[in-house]
């Protein structure tokens, strides 16, 4: 129920931002479209913890600001590799082990690897990702482990104590 309310609020805000109307008739039409979208979503049974991640923003936003710093750092390295007068790259394909509590955590970890320039997730397997890296500098095991732990903490709010 709380996820449904959150989805409705976000839909209404997006409708208002995209249209910018303030007349009563048009606003009521917007409300009607939100209701129809909610009915469709309920009928499709897609409202649950995974699909409405707005309540985890408190932990997701610090994670993505940290990730922004990482992106900026490795972007400069890729920039140098692409602009050198003589191209000198040593591509690597490495298998990164994944320790994730949930599907969402795995998904965010894979997405973070792809977002960081210089490394791209090529294949998702049961307990590992196949990662292609531009140079061996990007494939430090510590960096991946740290990103995995942070992604896990960001999605679940805590590590399970089991």
């Amino acid at each position: 129920m709380i996820y449904g309310t959150g989805l409705a609020v976000v839909l209404a805000v997006i409708w208002w931002v995209l249209s910018g109307y303030d007349k009563t008739l048009l606003l009521s039409l917007g409300a009607a479209s939100v209701v129809v979208t909610m009915l469709l979503a309920i009928r499709m049974r897609i409202i649950d913890r995974e699909t409405v991640p707005f309540f985890r923003l408190a932990t997701l936003i610090p994670f993505y600001t940290w990730l922004g710093g990482e992106i900026a750092k490795s972007n400069v390295a890729v920039l140098k590799a692409a602009l050198k007068p003589e191209i000198d790259v040593t591509p690597r394909l490495v298998r990164v082990p994944v320790d994730a509590q949930s599907d969402l955590s795995r998904c965010i970890f894979a997405n973070s690897i792809t977002l960081t320039p210089g490394t791209v997730t090529v294949e998702v397997e049961e307990d590992a990702f196949l990662v292609h890296a531009l140079t061996p500098d990007f494939t430090g095991a510590d960096g991946f482990a740290e990103m995995n732990a942070r992604a896990d903490r960001a999605t679940d709010g805590r590590r399970k104590s089991s």
């Binding site: 992106i71 900026a72 972007n75 890729v78 920039l79 692409a82 191209i87 790259v89 591509p91 792809t114 977002l115 320039p117 210089g118 791209v120 090529v122 292609h132 531009l134």
Partner: peptide, 18 residues
């Protein structure tokens, strides 16, 4: 400039993210 598909992919990633 980069030599093969997978390395070009990284260069395109620079553009798209930052």
């Amino acid at each position: 400039r980069l030599p093969d598909f997978f390395t070009r992919m990284h260069a395109a990633g620079v553009t798209d993210t930052l």
